[in-house]
Design a protein around this nucleic acid. Structure first.
Lengths: 199, 199
DNA sequence: GTCTATATGGCGATAGAC
DNA sequence: GTCTATCGCCATATAGAC
């Protein structure tokens, strides 16, 4: 190499990806609005100004994080097992894979599920969530109409309760926790046969 | 009356209770941290200063709201049907009545479920929530040990999924919605026989 | 019980040196 | 790519008149 070495940076932050990861962790711990750029900088070990060198602002960080979560969720709907086959079976696949995405992309999905709609970015995220939920509702309805599941309760209500149950996992799941491997199938079981089924 | 009429207030705010109700609505719409005292004042139709005459500050408002939610939830555990009888039957009662409290005290419980733990008040609320959840977990465990429900999944996991399903109702329920009357029993059914049970 | 006016501090964001 | 220094704004909260 004929180039002279560039001046050594004082505290390398590890690039955009690493900063995003740190920021998302702070957003989750304190809430997006309650987290200041000062908080983020301190957690990343650099100054506010340096942080602004990597992201144009606080909302850009949120946007990047939410896009990752949305991509993960919609990726589930594109899986073969989610597109082909009987409605009830597709539903099984989606629930199982949604749990998997939720645990592997935990911080990003957690952030997505807490968005309130204060900014354009947040409203975009809410719209994407609604679109995802609408897919689930449609699928539950199909399963009921095909007679594959009992029509005891309204399909729209069933879809809401299902999403609520699955999404609530972000409130307590932590990586490496015992039972992680069986969690997706346990959630499928709870969905189709009950959380505390009679013997 | 011999007293002279007091000077007419320019814009009567309707007292503490009414202001609290307004504030909680704003907190839910925008999030607690994103809501300013200016926002609250505007929504109530008075100035910031006037608001401070009724509540010592923003956190006092939060405290009052969270206390109401916590009182409602723990009131469920004190009901006769929640204290006496077989574990599975007590669980049924609690789920049904928790749904009822959740819908009647909707804004207050919604706020409780969104608390992050940034202030002393919020940490107190989180501690109360944990105590409530511990009661549910214990009850599920009793029901499993008594053989009243299937021991397919871990009781602790079942309790978490159950709480998640029930609590998620605040995300979509609105007063007067069709199906309100049957909601508590529908949730009980979903809990014990599945959200989308096989025929 | 309401108001106007203001104190005080932290916020997101930028300028410019190294 | 990092830093120090600072801008302009809006936040919570208070003082004191009516």
């Amino acid at each position: 190499m004929s180039e002279a070495p560039t001046k050594r940076a004082r505290r390398p932050s590890g690039g955009r990806e690493s900063l995003l990861e740190t920021a998302v962790g702070e957003f989750i711990a304190r809430g997006y609005d309650a987290t200041s750029m000062e908080d983020l900088s301190r957690a990343a070990g650099i100054t506010k100004s340096s942080f602004y060198h990597h992201f144009t602002g606080k909302e850009a960080l949120l946007r990047a994080a939410l896009e990752r979560a949305v991509d993960g969720l919609f990726g589930v709907l594109d899986l073969p097992g989610a597109r082909d086959g009987a409605p009830a079976e597709r539903l099984r696949t989606i629930v199982r894979e949604q749990v998997r995405v939720l645990t592997t992309e935990l911080p990003y999905v957690t952030l997505l599920l807490r968005v309130r709609g204060n900014t354009e970015t947040e409203r975009w995220a809410l719209e994407r969530r609604r679109a995802f939920d609408a897919e689930i509702t449609g699928l539950v309805r199909e399963a009921v109409e095909a007679g594959e599941v009992q029509a005891g309760i309204d399909p729209a209500l069933a879809a809401r309760l299902l999403s609520g149950l699955v999404n609530s996992i972000v409130e307590w799941y932590r990586p490496g926790r015992p039972g992680t491997a069986t969690l997706p199938e346990d959630v499928v079981a709870a969905t189709f046969t009950g959380i505390v089924p009679a013997p």
